[in-house]
Amino acid sequence: MAQPALKVMDLAASYRKNKVLYNVNFEVAAGTLTGVVGPNGAGKSTLIKTLLDLHPALTGHIEFYGLPFKKAKKKIGYVPQRGSVDWDFPTNALDVVTMGLYGNIGWLKRPSRKDKQKAYQSLEKMGMEGFADRQISELSGGQRQRVFLARALVQDADLYFMDEPLAGVDAATEKAIMRILQELKALGKTVLVVHHDLQTVEDYFDHVLLLNKTVIHHGKTENVFTSDKISETYGGNMKWITSREEGYHVVGPSNK
């Protein structure tokens, strides 16, 4: 097999003295679309933040295409949770997308016309070109998420980490985002998505990583996303709804 896009060995992290991740080991093959699934507090966001060096790791070794994070930075794109930034910040959609290029522009330089053009094209891909000049506080939740996605696209990374990009967005945005994720996959890019909606996992992802403080199961969706393995991850607190054709269908954890 070729070099994995991501290799995680014996990773552990704590958050406010609680150990939220321990003994995390997994490998992600290049060109896959992986859903990271697990109950609330399973450490999904912390996992991504720790991988990207935004949160300190207690132990562990992480390689991106065989390289340490510092050398692989340019190949990595990150879409944080929408709620992680202040949407009242005085800036517009095009500007936010342009920020994705700041790493390449270099110190003391301003974004060029070409950079702005790239950002605009990226907005177009997300169907957001009409909102380029719009103040970001005036965008809806779905539109904000599309701006974030556009910003990730403009980075032109090989490996993307997305933290709940589909949480609380409208149906049209969800469709647009999934289309882009499929496109990225077709281009040979690797995408890891923290996902909350168990119902759509099978349709959206070719690989699933079931996480609850450590990797419970990881592999191809058809092998991993099974009722017993999901129960194991969520600790048995699952609500199953029997559907006519398939026997059963996952709805979500019942302890919400």
């Binding site: 935004l54 992680s84 920020m99 994705g100």
Partner: peptide
Amino acid sequence: FDPALAASL
């Protein structure tokens, strides 16, 4: 605006 993105860049 977005320190996490800045750090990742």
